[in-house]
Every structure is written in structure tokens, then in C-alpha cells.
Amino acid sequence: MPLSLLLKLLILPIYLLLPFTLNWSLGPWPWLLPFVIWIVLILVNAMAEVLRSRR
């Protein structure tokens, strides 16, 4: 399986559980947490797309 697809599959469960990530709140960033996680997921997806385009 290509690494790009593996990365996308890894971030999929986090996307699916995004609104429930508030329960994971550690520290002072509760309501922004889903958005911060979402930014990370976007960056991981971008990296996967770069890997795919190189392949």
C-alpha cells in the first residue's frame, strides 16, 4: 500500500471523531481543539498528496 494512502487512512478516524475531541481537552484550548486537530489533518493530507504526486 502506498504511504500516501496509508496516511489518509490513518487520519480518517480522527476526522470521523473530530467533534468528540473536545473530550480530550487538556489545557486551556478546549473549543479550538477540533480546529487545531483539523489543521494538523490538513497538513498530513497535504504531505500525502505531495508523496502521491512524486510517485
Binding site: Y15, L16, L18, P19, W38, R52
Partner: peptide, 20 residues
């Protein structure tokens, strides 16, 4: 629905992630 409104945006984002 609280954070349920995010589905409108996250749903399309997931579809785009798996665009291939």
C-alpha cells in the same frame, strides 16, 4: 447540535481527502 455543524465542512473535506 453543538459541534455537529462541523459535519457540513468535514464531510466534504473527507471526500476530498479520498479524491483519488
Amino acid at each position: 447540535l453543538g459541534y455537529g455543524y462541523l459535519a457540513y465542512y468535514v464531510g466534504l473535506a473527507i471526500a476530498l481527502v479520498f479524491s483519488a
